[in-house]
Design a protein around this nucleic acid. Structure first.
Lengths: 344, 344
DNA sequence: CTGTTAGCGCATTCAA
DNA sequence: TTGAATGCGCTAACAG
């Protein structure tokens, strides 16, 4: 025979069974569905009934089982967010903001770190899709192209956050690296800066930035931009060695060094200091990301801020609109801001 | 009448319904339970059957609905991890390691940022418990004491990660701030260091560390330890102002400045540099957390490393043991290591 | 080794 | 405004 309900014969020694709608309903003298409504659609329940039911809910410590609720309603109120890693993620501020907003709206974030082999990425995706999230947010890149296909087939809204690229899966929220590069060129050219160099780690996005900057400077008539590219990870050492290499090529320091990140920029500043070069008088330094300054209060680092909070909120808002059946734009540019501090 | 199955009359225009066990079972010519077993307990299924079923699974792109599975089995394979915030969390490395290990073992991490009002913390907990996690991991502190009660009542294993405190909820994995303080005292005293000062943000844990260090130094016969305590957040500025204040009190620099974090320590180093004090020749500087060096390759910062990865793995292992019904220690000390770099 | 039966806890649908 | 019946998709328990 099949199993009998665990609730039929309450074992004395057994662990206390979690309270269910039915338990609450019995105590309150109503049907289970009325309890459900009292919680989720209070306006559709008679005031007196509602008060009584909610009182029982409180005193019994009832916590609705969202697994059951999700299964029954086919809405999990779960938004899965893929990110490369929890530590040192440039996306964490975006994710934090998105999570906050989604939480307000009654959704929960399910975070999935993808920084494994492309093979394990598949397993992760499977595990995530198995929870039937109402949407997916991707930050960083998917290693496995098959994963993209799988997402498309899942019939779930997908937001790609951070940068705007050519092949959107569904919704994109981010900024344009090319626009950032051009903006930097225009800004400093207008200030009279001509001789510009770049120090960067090996990174396709960083390359798009300094590539666009160099191209724009070329259009404006500035001299070519020497670029020092060095292997990951981004560290102070990259900046130090980068500036050293630039100066080895040409002893006259550039007027501006554009860096692939704030961390690298700090290294450039350190190297400049050790050579007696004053920042910004002798050498301007531009970082990227505004990820360092807030934490370390370094006054001499200019940077490009990418509006992480605004971006996260846009991610959430776009999804909420989609959930509510409202029309959704597929391309949200949250822009960036060039922040000048003492160094420039 | 009650609703009819959505599957009864497949609407032509409707979204494609997700594949279910039943769909797979029919195609493979077996019963649903056999499909379930082929996936989760392959060893209990005939080789030929299994191969055939898994083939159908693949070709139909079947992704098991974990909501339904969890509901039926009362095991969600979800481990909820509470953390203060995603950004700049000192716990992120611990969480990353724990998540990795849990993922390997077939569990998923559900992250919940608690950095809201104590009131919202209750709502977050409710939302999390509603997913019926198999365990909870807490990093940082719960704002609301009522939350602790709620957790105890939930009948779910709880791990408190990071530090060892007096009142364990269930399992604790971490290190002792007092032991760290004493270790620092013993270590530097043995090296002949006597005049020690501390710069710290307002933080109970940091206070436990420098308090223990000062007490131990007192026992050893060293002079009293002046302490500069400043408001959060921890920044370079704290370290700069802290050292300046110490030197204002006593122009002769201490032999060692113990800082509440690496960030603060970098500020002390910067301030020392600006005053022409050599680190470590004139002044040794000790940070805490080893959170900065890996990213910024700063060679002159000694620190206390708290073994975040090991800690995260211990968190996961403790839970896995508990899940498997094995005896669980309630107090795992993952220790710390004093890392000396050029600055000391 | 495989199948049958029933139930996990809730929300949807329809009826009263 | 409230309730009854039923199904969401899966797995535990037992029978064969």
């Amino acid at each position: 025979m099949a199993r009998k309900s665990r609730r039929d014969t309450p074992q004395p020694g057994a662990a206390p069974l979690p309270v269910t709608v039915t338990d609450v309903a019995q105590r309150a003298g109503v049907s289970p569905i009325t309890v459900s409504r009292a919680i989720h659609r209070p306006e559709r329940v008679n005031q007196a009934t509602r008060v009584r039911v909610l009182e029982v809910v409180r005193e019994m410590g009832y916590v609705p089982n969202l697994l059951a609720g999700s299964l029954a309603s086919s809405r999990s109120r779960l938004v899965a967010i893929l990110l490369p890693t929890l530590t040192n993620s440039p996306y964490s501020a975006v994710i934090q903001a998105a999570t906050d907003r989604l939480t307000e709206a009654g959704y929960q974030a399910l975070l999935g770190p993808t920084s494994y082999s492309a093979e394990k990425e598949g397993a992760l995706l499977e595990a995530i899709l198995g929870r039937r999230p109402d949407a997916l947010v991707i930050t960083g890149r998917l290693h496995n192209p098959a994963s993209r296909q799988r997402l498309l087939g899942a019939g779930v809204p997908v937001v790609e956050a951070w940068d705007l690229s050519a092949q959107p899966l569904d919704i994109q929220v981010g900024f344009s690296h090319e626009a950032a590069g051009r903006h930097i060129a225009d800004h400093f050219f207008a200030k009279g800066v001509r001789r510009v160099a770049a120090v960067s780690v090996i990174d396709a996005r960083a390359a798009r930035r300094h590539g666009s900057m160099a191209a724009r400077l070329g259009e404006l008539g500035a001299p070519p931009v020497p670029v020092e590219v060095r292997p990951l990870p981004a560290s102070w050492e990259v900046g130090r060695a980068g500036l050293a290499a630039l100066l080895a090529r040409d002893p006259q320091p550039p007027e501006l060094v554009m860096c692939s990140s704030d961390t690298v920029a700090l290294g450039v500043i350190a190297e400049a200091a050790s050579r007696g070069l004053r920042v910004p008088q002798d050498l301007r330094v531009l970082g990227f990301g505004d990820s360092v300054n807030g934490r370390f209060a370094w006054p001499a680092l200019s940077t490009v801020s990418i509006h992480a909070s605004a971006m996260g909120i846009e991610v959430a808002e776009a999804l909420l609109r989609r959930f509510h059946g409202q029309p959704t734009e597929t391309h949200v540019d949250t822009g960036f801001t060039l922040i000048e501090r003492a160094s420039t």
